[in-house]
Design a protein around this nucleic acid. Sequence first.
DNA 1: ACCTCGACCTGGGCGC
DNA 2: TGCGCCCAGGTCGAGG
Length: 292
Amino acid sequence: MPELPEVETVRRSLEPFVPGRRIARVEIRDSLVIKRPDPSHYPKLLEGQQFTHLDRLGKYLILHLERHGLLVHLGMTGQLTFRDPTRPDTAFLRHPYTGLQRTLQHPVDAHTHISLEFEDGTALHYRDIRKFGKWRLYPTEDLERSPELTGLGPDPITGDFRLEPFQARLRKTSRAVKAALLDQAVVAGLGNIYVDEALFRAGVRPRKAARRLTGRETERLHSAIKEVLLAGIEAGGTTLRDFVDGTGAAGTNQERLLVYGRHGQPCAVCGTPLKRATVAQRTTSWCAVCQR
DNA sequence: ACCTCGACCTGGGCGC
DNA sequence: TGCGCCCAGGTCGAGG
Protein backbone atom coordinates (compact mmCIF):
# COMPACT_ATOMS: atom_id res chain seq x y z
CA MET A 1 0.00 0.00 0.00
CA PRO A 2 1.77 2.91 1.34
CA GLU A 3 4.32 4.45 -0.94
CA LEU A 4 4.78 8.19 -1.19
CA PRO A 5 1.42 9.01 -2.82
CA GLU A 6 -0.53 7.01 -0.27
CA VAL A 7 1.29 8.59 2.67
CA GLU A 8 0.82 12.05 1.17
CA THR A 9 -2.88 11.29 0.67
CA VAL A 10 -3.18 10.37 4.34
CA ARG A 11 -1.35 13.54 5.34
CA ARG A 12 -3.59 15.79 3.28
CA SER A 13 -6.79 14.10 4.38
CA LEU A 14 -5.89 14.43 8.06
CA GLU A 15 -4.82 18.05 7.72
CA PRO A 16 -8.32 19.51 8.36
CA PHE A 17 -8.87 17.41 11.48
CA VAL A 18 -5.70 16.77 13.42
CA PRO A 19 -3.70 20.01 13.78
CA GLY A 20 -5.03 22.03 16.71
CA ARG A 21 -6.45 19.02 18.51
CA ARG A 22 -5.13 18.11 21.94
CA ILE A 23 -4.59 14.51 23.01
CA ALA A 24 -6.65 13.67 26.08
CA ARG A 25 -6.01 9.95 26.25
CA VAL A 26 -3.73 7.40 24.62
CA GLU A 27 -5.04 3.88 24.24
CA ILE A 28 -2.58 1.17 23.25
CA ARG A 29 -4.12 -2.24 22.62
CA ASP A 30 -1.11 -3.77 20.89
CA SER A 31 2.27 -2.10 21.28
CA LEU A 32 4.14 -4.11 18.65
CA VAL A 33 4.44 -1.24 16.18
CA ILE A 34 5.81 1.19 18.78
CA LYS A 35 9.58 1.18 18.38
CA ARG A 36 10.59 4.13 20.53
CA PRO A 37 10.53 5.10 23.24
CA ASP A 38 9.13 2.23 25.29
CA PRO A 39 5.33 2.05 24.69
CA SER A 40 4.68 2.45 28.41
CA HIS A 41 5.90 6.06 28.14
CA TYR A 42 3.45 7.07 25.45
CA PRO A 43 0.51 8.15 27.62
CA LYS A 44 2.68 10.27 29.90
CA LEU A 45 4.51 11.88 26.97
CA LEU A 46 1.54 12.50 24.69
CA GLU A 47 -1.43 13.27 26.91
CA GLY A 48 -1.97 17.02 27.10
CA GLN A 49 -0.01 17.78 23.93
CA GLN A 50 -1.57 19.40 20.91
CA PHE A 51 -0.85 18.50 17.29
CA THR A 52 0.57 21.48 15.42
CA HIS A 53 1.12 20.40 11.81
CA LEU A 54 1.55 17.37 9.59
CA ASP A 55 4.52 16.67 7.42
CA ARG A 56 5.89 13.88 5.28
CA LEU A 57 9.27 12.74 4.06
CA GLY A 58 9.38 9.79 1.70
CA LYS A 59 7.10 7.17 3.21
CA TYR A 60 7.27 8.67 6.69
CA LEU A 61 4.35 10.63 8.03
CA ILE A 62 5.49 13.21 10.56
CA LEU A 63 2.89 14.38 13.06
CA HIS A 64 4.26 17.39 14.86
CA LEU A 65 3.17 18.03 18.43
CA GLU A 66 4.09 20.93 20.67
CA ARG A 67 7.13 19.16 22.09
CA HIS A 68 7.51 15.99 20.02
CA GLY A 69 7.50 14.67 16.51
CA LEU A 70 5.66 11.41 15.90
CA LEU A 71 7.18 9.48 13.03
CA VAL A 72 4.76 6.96 11.55
CA HIS A 73 5.62 4.43 8.86
CA LEU A 74 2.56 2.56 7.63
CA GLY A 75 4.42 -0.58 6.60
CA MET A 76 2.21 -2.66 4.32
CA THR A 77 -1.25 -2.37 5.85
CA GLY A 78 -1.17 0.60 8.22
CA GLN A 79 -4.24 2.88 8.30
CA LEU A 80 -4.39 6.17 10.17
CA THR A 81 -7.94 7.48 10.32
CA PHE A 82 -9.81 10.23 12.10
CA ARG A 83 -13.14 9.41 13.74
CA ASP A 84 -15.88 11.73 14.86
CA PRO A 85 -18.31 9.70 17.00
CA THR A 86 -21.21 12.02 16.21
CA ARG A 87 -21.10 10.85 12.60
CA PRO A 88 -22.22 7.41 11.48
CA ASP A 89 -19.63 4.65 11.16
CA THR A 90 -19.48 2.39 8.16
CA ALA A 91 -17.09 -0.21 9.52
CA PHE A 92 -14.75 -2.07 7.22
CA LEU A 93 -16.81 -3.37 4.36
CA ARG A 94 -15.55 -5.05 1.27
CA HIS A 95 -17.06 -3.91 -1.99
CA PRO A 96 -18.75 -6.98 -3.54
CA TYR A 97 -17.50 -6.22 -7.03
CA THR A 98 -14.19 -4.38 -6.76
CA GLY A 99 -13.15 -5.97 -3.48
CA LEU A 100 -12.03 -2.58 -2.21
CA GLN A 101 -12.30 -1.51 1.38
CA ARG A 102 -15.10 1.00 1.80
CA THR A 103 -14.97 2.32 5.27
CA LEU A 104 -15.20 6.02 5.90
CA GLN A 105 -14.78 6.27 9.59
CA HIS A 106 -14.51 3.10 11.57
CA PRO A 107 -15.04 2.04 15.15
CA VAL A 108 -12.27 0.22 16.99
CA ASP A 109 -11.86 -3.36 15.83
CA ALA A 110 -9.42 -6.21 16.45
CA HIS A 111 -6.75 -4.59 14.25
CA THR A 112 -6.99 -1.11 15.72
CA HIS A 113 -3.85 -1.12 17.84
CA ILE A 114 -3.56 2.49 18.94
CA SER A 115 -6.05 5.31 19.49
CA LEU A 116 -5.23 8.90 20.31
CA GLU A 117 -8.39 10.35 21.80
CA PHE A 118 -9.01 14.07 21.77
CA GLU A 119 -10.80 16.26 24.32
CA ASP A 120 -13.88 16.65 22.10
CA GLY A 121 -14.46 12.91 21.77
CA THR A 122 -12.93 12.56 18.32
CA ALA A 123 -9.94 10.27 17.85
CA LEU A 124 -7.10 9.31 15.58
CA HIS A 125 -7.03 5.54 15.11
CA TYR A 126 -4.16 3.39 13.94
CA ARG A 127 -5.16 0.10 12.35
CA ASP A 128 -2.63 -2.32 10.89
CA ILE A 129 -3.49 -5.89 9.98
CA ARG A 130 0.04 -7.13 9.40
CA LYS A 131 1.65 -4.92 12.03
CA PHE A 132 4.61 -4.04 9.82
CA GLY A 133 4.09 -0.37 10.60
CA LYS A 134 6.38 1.53 12.96
CA TRP A 135 5.77 4.39 15.37
CA ARG A 136 8.65 6.43 16.74
CA LEU A 137 8.38 9.42 19.01
CA TYR A 138 11.20 11.96 19.20
CA PRO A 139 11.57 15.22 21.08
CA THR A 140 11.18 17.90 18.38
CA GLU A 141 14.83 18.90 18.58
CA ASP A 142 15.98 15.32 17.89
CA LEU A 143 13.62 14.60 15.01
CA GLU A 144 15.78 15.92 12.19
CA ARG A 145 18.74 13.94 13.45
CA SER A 146 16.80 10.69 13.70
CA PRO A 147 18.39 7.82 11.78
CA GLU A 148 15.10 7.28 9.95
CA LEU A 149 15.05 10.76 8.43
CA THR A 150 18.77 11.30 7.93
CA GLY A 151 18.95 8.05 5.98
CA LEU A 152 16.52 9.25 3.33
CA GLY A 153 17.41 10.53 -0.10
CA PRO A 154 15.58 13.49 -1.62
CA ASP A 155 11.78 13.53 -1.65
CA PRO A 156 10.69 13.94 -5.30
CA ILE A 157 7.59 15.96 -4.43
CA THR A 158 8.52 18.27 -1.59
CA GLY A 159 12.27 17.99 -1.59
CA ASP A 160 15.21 18.93 -3.71
CA PHE A 161 15.20 16.08 -6.21
CA ARG A 162 17.67 17.23 -8.80
CA LEU A 163 18.80 15.44 -11.91
CA GLU A 164 22.56 15.72 -11.49
CA PRO A 165 22.93 14.17 -8.03
CA PHE A 166 20.41 11.49 -9.04
CA GLN A 167 22.44 10.69 -12.11
CA ALA A 168 25.70 10.68 -10.14
CA ARG A 169 24.19 8.29 -7.63
CA LEU A 170 22.98 5.88 -10.30
CA ARG A 171 26.34 5.96 -12.07
CA LYS A 172 28.06 4.73 -8.93
CA THR A 173 26.25 1.43 -8.73
CA SER A 174 26.05 -1.70 -10.82
CA ARG A 175 22.82 -2.88 -9.16
CA ALA A 176 19.70 -3.28 -11.24
CA VAL A 177 18.08 0.13 -11.66
CA LYS A 178 14.95 -1.20 -9.96
CA ALA A 179 16.95 -2.13 -6.86
CA ALA A 180 18.52 1.33 -6.80
CA LEU A 181 15.12 3.04 -7.05
CA LEU A 182 13.72 0.96 -4.21
CA ASP A 183 16.62 2.13 -2.05
CA GLN A 184 15.18 4.95 0.08
CA ALA A 185 18.63 6.51 0.34
CA VAL A 186 18.71 7.09 -3.42
CA VAL A 187 15.25 8.61 -3.66
CA ALA A 188 12.66 8.61 -0.89
CA GLY A 189 9.15 7.32 -1.40
CA LEU A 190 9.17 4.76 -4.18
CA GLY A 191 7.96 1.21 -3.61
CA ASN A 192 7.19 -1.72 -5.86
CA ILE A 193 4.20 -0.22 -7.64
CA TYR A 194 5.51 3.22 -8.51
CA VAL A 195 8.97 1.94 -9.42
CA ASP A 196 7.49 -0.34 -12.08
CA GLU A 197 5.27 2.47 -13.34
CA ALA A 198 8.17 4.95 -13.51
CA LEU A 199 10.43 2.49 -15.33
CA PHE A 200 7.69 1.85 -17.87
CA ARG A 201 7.09 5.54 -18.50
CA ALA A 202 10.81 6.09 -18.88
CA GLY A 203 11.21 3.12 -21.21
CA VAL A 204 13.87 1.50 -19.05
CA ARG A 205 14.24 -2.21 -18.34
CA PRO A 206 14.04 -2.92 -14.59
CA ARG A 207 17.09 -5.20 -14.68
CA LYS A 208 19.35 -2.79 -16.49
CA ALA A 209 22.42 -1.94 -14.41
CA ALA A 210 21.95 1.53 -12.95
CA ARG A 211 25.39 2.69 -14.07
CA ARG A 212 24.63 1.78 -17.67
CA LEU A 213 21.65 4.11 -18.10
CA THR A 214 22.23 6.71 -20.77
CA GLY A 215 21.88 10.39 -20.00
CA ARG A 216 18.56 10.45 -21.82
CA GLU A 217 17.29 7.47 -19.87
CA THR A 218 18.23 9.02 -16.54
CA GLU A 219 16.48 12.23 -17.55
CA ARG A 220 13.34 10.38 -18.54
CA LEU A 221 13.44 8.38 -15.33
CA HIS A 222 13.89 11.50 -13.24
CA SER A 223 10.80 13.04 -14.85
CA ALA A 224 8.82 9.81 -14.81
CA ILE A 225 9.33 9.38 -11.07
CA LYS A 226 7.81 12.79 -10.38
CA GLU A 227 5.00 12.15 -12.85
CA VAL A 228 3.89 8.81 -11.45
CA LEU A 229 4.02 10.06 -7.89
CA LEU A 230 2.02 13.20 -8.70
CA ALA A 231 -0.52 11.17 -10.64
CA GLY A 232 -0.81 8.82 -7.67
CA ILE A 233 -1.45 11.72 -5.31
CA GLU A 234 -4.03 13.20 -7.68
CA ALA A 235 -5.87 9.88 -7.71
CA GLY A 236 -5.84 9.70 -3.93
CA GLY A 237 -3.41 6.79 -3.85
CA THR A 238 -3.49 3.20 -5.07
CA THR A 239 -5.88 0.89 -3.24
CA LEU A 240 -5.17 -2.74 -4.03
CA ARG A 241 -6.69 -3.98 -0.83
CA ASP A 242 -6.07 -2.12 2.38
CA PHE A 243 -5.19 1.46 1.63
CA VAL A 244 -7.54 4.17 2.83
CA ASP A 245 -6.92 7.84 3.52
CA GLY A 246 -7.48 9.62 6.83
CA THR A 247 -11.23 9.71 6.29
CA GLY A 248 -11.42 6.04 5.34
CA ALA A 249 -11.78 6.57 1.60
CA ALA A 250 -10.07 4.30 -0.93
CA GLY A 251 -7.92 5.69 -3.74
CA THR A 252 -8.43 5.25 -7.48
CA ASN A 253 -4.89 5.09 -8.87
CA GLN A 254 -5.17 1.29 -9.28
CA GLU A 255 -7.36 2.06 -12.31
CA ARG A 256 -4.53 3.98 -13.94
CA LEU A 257 -1.66 1.56 -13.47
CA LEU A 258 -0.02 0.67 -16.76
CA VAL A 259 2.21 -2.24 -15.75
CA TYR A 260 2.04 -3.12 -12.05
CA GLY A 261 0.03 -6.32 -11.62
CA ARG A 262 -0.84 -6.42 -15.34
CA HIS A 263 1.55 -9.17 -16.48
CA GLY A 264 0.08 -11.18 -19.31
CA GLN A 265 -2.17 -8.32 -20.36
CA PRO A 266 -1.35 -6.27 -23.47
CA CYS A 267 0.95 -3.28 -23.06
CA ALA A 268 -1.11 -0.07 -23.24
CA VAL A 269 1.33 1.36 -25.80
CA CYS A 270 2.36 -1.49 -28.09
CA GLY A 271 -0.03 -4.33 -27.28
CA THR A 272 2.66 -6.90 -26.49
CA PRO A 273 1.80 -9.04 -23.45
CA LEU A 274 3.57 -7.66 -20.39
CA LYS A 275 6.32 -9.75 -18.77
CA ARG A 276 6.66 -10.72 -15.16
CA ALA A 277 9.75 -11.81 -13.23
CA THR A 278 11.44 -11.30 -9.90
CA VAL A 279 13.83 -8.35 -9.83
CA ALA A 280 15.39 -7.02 -6.65
CA GLN A 281 13.46 -9.73 -4.79
CA ARG A 282 10.15 -8.19 -5.84
CA THR A 283 7.55 -9.23 -8.37
CA THR A 284 8.14 -7.02 -11.37
CA SER A 285 6.10 -6.29 -14.50
CA TRP A 286 7.36 -4.60 -17.62
CA CYS A 287 7.01 -4.40 -21.39
CA ALA A 288 9.93 -6.08 -23.14
CA VAL A 289 9.29 -4.00 -26.26
CA CYS A 290 8.80 -0.52 -24.78
CA GLN A 291 11.45 -0.89 -22.10
CA ARG A 292 15.00 -1.48 -23.29
C1' DA B 1 28.98 -3.17 -2.07
C1' DC B 2 25.79 -6.28 -3.45
C1' DC B 3 22.86 -10.36 -3.37
C1' DT B 4 19.82 -13.83 -1.35
C1' DC B 5 17.27 -15.46 2.23
C1' DG B 6 14.48 -15.37 6.12
C1' DA B 7 12.01 -12.80 9.52
C1' DC B 8 8.48 -9.80 11.08
C1' DC B 9 2.58 -10.52 10.70
C1' DT B 10 -2.25 -11.52 8.91
C1' DG B 11 -5.44 -12.57 5.51
C1' DG B 12 -7.12 -13.49 0.73
C1' DG B 13 -7.27 -16.48 -3.18
C1' DC B 14 -6.78 -20.72 -5.33
C1' DG B 15 -6.36 -25.70 -6.16
C1' DC B 16 -7.72 -29.98 -4.49
C1' DT C 1 -16.35 -26.58 3.76
C1' DG C 2 -11.79 -27.05 4.76
C1' DC C 3 -6.83 -27.52 4.33
C1' DG C 4 -2.47 -26.33 2.55
C1' DC C 5 0.09 -23.44 -0.18
C1' DC C 6 1.40 -19.14 -2.29
C1' DC C 7 1.09 -14.33 -2.50
C1' DA C 8 1.01 -9.34 -0.85
C1' DG C 9 2.13 -2.14 -1.10
C1' DG C 10 7.98 -2.55 3.37
C1' DT C 11 12.04 -2.93 5.85
C1' DC C 12 15.89 -5.20 8.42
C1' DG C 13 19.73 -8.19 9.63
C1' DA C 14 22.60 -12.26 8.83
C1' DG C 15 25.63 -14.59 5.92
C1' DG C 16 27.96 -15.37 1.47
